[in-house]
Design a protein around this nucleic acid. Structure first.
Lengths: 160, 160
DNA sequence: GGACAAAGTCCATAATCTGGACTAACTTGC
DNA sequence: GCAAGTTAGTCCAGATTATGGACTTTGTCC
């Protein structure tokens, strides 16, 4: 399967990754969450090629994950701002951060700490159930097929 | 910057993505969370090349995200099981799922629904604060530099 | 014995990424 | 006023990585 065909799959994880699943996009989004707005700021932070950065930014704009705002004309220059759709990726970044902190932080501990303004403490993200509000572990969870995902049945009767 | 140099960056998101940030790995993990155990099961589900699947599985094993268990000898054949480290990626997958459901589900609604056995309801994942237990939005949060992430300062005095 | 399966490896071709050069229109320094 | 620097790009040749198909090994099924 080619990568771009993923978006046609009946799986929401696949469809999400068709947009943000390449090697750089989630890092670009990390920079936007940290407050970066301009092309060269992002480029300096990540050290990726201009070609790729320009291409990813325009894909993310086309998908509605961010929008460009001109901050000058002549020459026309843009800032990049996350939309609501982009901001909804916050938990994905936060849990990648936590995973990296947990398994790859060096001796110095996590390089970035998150502070929760509402309660005044440094925190780590937790996954909770929208219905009962309690923390959820994968062992307390069952996926159930909805419409139109024939592959699920094959996976749910697994090779055990 | 080359991709493999990412693991040397002082950013936990970058270090996580150095392991799971290529185009296929999170989809392989999705299959493992759904119960897939065997090489051809995963391959049939994703349609990726054997070369890449073999390479990714051995990288994930080397990183301790999964382990191989032989289920027969002659010829030697393995099943792939998530370790605790792998299971800790569950929230990442769940929030990618929710994002795809929210923005890319077709007319039929989400292809897979998650059921929380503990409370008996279908649910969506929510990000909560480890300290106060309340839901967290990105607007109530500030990143603070820990040790050894010089780039953060540049990003936190942004281009606004 | 022949066909088929499972889990790989190997390789030529195709797709993608990189790094450097180039551009346009300012701004700053001298 | 003019050269040098900045920003946000585009363009291209060469390097890297992925793809798809063939091949292998050992075993089972008919």
């Amino acid at each position: 399967m080619k990568w771009h065909e993923l978006s046609e799959q009946h799986c929401s994880v696949a469809r999400s990754l068709a947009v943000v699943g390449d090697r750089w996009t989630l890092l670009i989004l990390r920079d936007l969450f940290l407050g970066a707005r301009r092309f060269e700021t992002i480029r300096d932070s990540l050290g990726l090629s201009r070609t790729i950065l320009a291409e990813r930014l325009s894909l993310l704009e086309a998908e509605g994950v961010l929008r460009r705002k001109p901050y000058q004309e002549k020459p026309l220059r843009h800032e990049y701002h996350l939309t609501g759709k982009g901001i909804d990726l916050y938990p994905v970044i936060m849990f990648l951060l936590r995973w990296g902190d947990r398994y790859y932080a060096g001796d110095q501990g996590p390089p970035v700490v998150q502070h929760h303004l509402a309660c005044g403490h440094d925190f780590t993200p937790e996954l909770h159930c929208s219905e009962c509000g309690e923390p959820v572990s994968p062992f307390e969870t069952r996926p159930r097929a909805g419409e139109g995902f024939p592959q699920l049945a094959a996976l749910l009767s697994p090779d055990d």
